[in-house]
Design a protein around this nucleic acid. Structure first.
Lengths: 351, 351
DNA sequence: CTGAAAGCGCTTACAG
DNA sequence: CTGAAAGCGCTTACAG
């Protein structure tokens, strides 16, 4: 910005009042008479005045900004979560500062330093994890931290988690109930706790059920990795008849490889369950049964916590993913009443 | 933020220098001796000091913030563009303030007012359009405006456009060359100039070619609308054998309806061309020929313009979409050498 | 209810 | 190269 914007001083002069009055006019609850208020509002409107949030943030020690720190923000699940968060923040009168990171710790640290330098009221981590020392600096500065789908915790922070392991276990039960006999779990090499938990729950339940199972990890979490995983698993001599994939994005890759490269019918020859319920899971070409991550709920609860009184004790929030039943899961003998209450009908709304 | 963060004063005291010295230490090009610089850096590191950008923005009249104003940010194309823009901004030392809007003019105006109140160095519009009066306020305040895919212009702003009509014309030539005889163009009801231009170019060329054609508009730009458009067009007695769809997202809906509901083979019974080259266009299940919007180029050029000297004359930038040839387009007699130079091989990289 | 004054954390001429 | 001082635009006790 070159030129100076119109300031409270300009408005005060035009309205014939003090700058303090102008400030009060835009401060909810400040004492000001209806008459001067009207005069000021008129002058402000005429001049196109907007309170300078840089200055007010400086004074009030509250910027109104919240940093959203994430990598791969163009990915379906991430962009849906980001959208939900920005909207929830706006409704709460705050604004989102989106900071892109890559997989390096370094970029996460840089992101958080930027957040600190803008004195954001909070930082919400969708990927990565702040170093403990830095997170303590944040805490000292009165900045709030929200960790979504992270496993470690930090003092004074809110951790939002999904019941991942339980979903893995339910996947096994569903597949077994559908008559599948050779199960597989497919995941990426990403070292995130949520993916590992989903895998762990699955393996645990498969072991418990005494059924034939296998686990495979591929590259980064992506459609391409899904293709690789599918190609590997589905060309084995003992081909699995069911795959639980830890993210929908990879499940789409598996589905496409199965159908278009290997000519397998879904669900007749391969049952598939994903995780996230991204928009594409509801598309006709995938029709993927999956566990929905309720992004609106995650966003709403994260933002609500921000206006809660600070407390050094870390808060923890566990969110239940909801099973969304679609066509990718064979329903041969679908008699497990235990899950029927949470089975919802197809929900193909894009975020 | 409750507590006060550590300030330059604290650092100055610890290092035994003046606050001015601390400020110089973090101002590129300011004159400071190597020795005091080192002392200050050490003290700053020890205290976890970060320059307060609220204060420095206030003083230097440059917040380092850029507002990104957009609706439907979880949509594939939008999220890819948003990702490219946030990254380009970060590389240029700026940070993105993402403001979500809905379809109303009111929300666009509110978004821009928020941007002004944070004194963002610029506002980039991916959707919607600022009212002329407000955009003048921005200009007066020295704030830069970038309009992506908008048709109107505003004084002092950069307008980035895609050669939309030309793509529509090329689609006709490609489809005719592929041996298609009954063409259709499918678009949404969205009143955006880019979609209308794509449609217009198509109709113009189809008329010129003297070929059988039809045009259909559906609801909002979405996968679901694509399905509706596909169902409508493909169940007509005179079923089109080729559809140019103004966005990939809708094209995916058409492809799925064609294949999964109507049992049509692509490209044998239906050739399909989309626009955008979203990640899904490269997925096996779609394998969609499309015109790629080079989001990285759009982002890079938009951001580069921001550090250009301001000028009241509106700037205009026309970007050529690149044809990405994939399997959804029949190649019966593919002899149009005119286009071959821009035909690239399959490019299925997700952003 | 209202204004004068102090102060938030910074940058930047101005002297030295 | 360095410090004291002024000033960016705001908010908030403090008097009246």
């Amino acid at each position: 910005m070159r030129k100076n914007a119109v300031s409270a001083k300009d408005v005060a002069e035009l309205a014939g009042v003090s700058r303090a009055a102008v400030s009060r006019c835009f401060t909810p609850g400040a004492s000001i008479s209806a008459e001067t208020r009207a005069r000021i509002l008129k002058a402000a409107d005429q001049l196109g005045y907007q309170v300078n949030r840089l200055a007010s943030g400086l004074i009030r020690n509250e910027s109104g900004l919240v940093a959203l720190i994430a990598s791969e923000i163009a990915t379906p699940y991430r962009s849906e979560l980001l959208s939900a968060l920005t909207q929830a923040l706006q409704q709460a009168g705050k604004l989102a500062l989106v900071i892109n990171t890559d997989r390096s710790d370094d970029s996460v640290e840089r992101a958080l330093r930027q957040a600190i330098s803008y004195r954001t009221d909070a930082a919400i981590f969708l990927s990565g994890m702040p170093a403990r020392s830095l997170s303590e600096t944040c805490l000292r500065n009165g900045m709030r931290l929200v960790l979504i789908n992270r496993d470690e915790e930090r003092p004074g922070s809110l951790r939002v988690r999904i019941a991942d392991a339980e979903a893995g276990r339910r996947a096994v039960a569903l597949l077994v109930a559908a008559g599948c006999r050779r199960l597989a779990v497919a995941t990426s090499s990403a070292d995130t706790p949520s993916l590992k938990e989903r895998e762990r729950g699955f393996i645990e339940a498969a072991r418990g059920a005494g059924i034939d199972w296998t686990a495979l990890r591929g590259g980064p979490t992506s459609y391409q990795t899904g293709q690789d995983l599918g190609m590997d698993l589905l060309t084995r001599p003992e081909r699995p008849d069911a795959i639980f994939c830890t993210t929908d994005l990879m499940a789409c890759g598996i589905a496409d490889v199965a159908r278009w490269r290997l000519g397998l019918a879904i669900p007749q020859q391969l049952s598939l369950i994903g995780f996230d319920d991204i928009a594409q899971a509801g598309w006709d070409g995938y029709d993927l049964s999956t566990f929905r991550q309720p992004v609106d709920e995650i966003a709403a609860k994260s933002v609500a916590w921000l206006s809660t009184v600070a407390d050094d004790h870390p808060a923890d929030l566990m969110i239940e993913p909801r099973l969304v039943m679609r066509g990718s899961l064979a329903r041969k003998n679908h008699t497990v009443s235990r899950y029927s209450s949470t089975v919802s009908s197809s929900d193909s709304s894009a975020m």
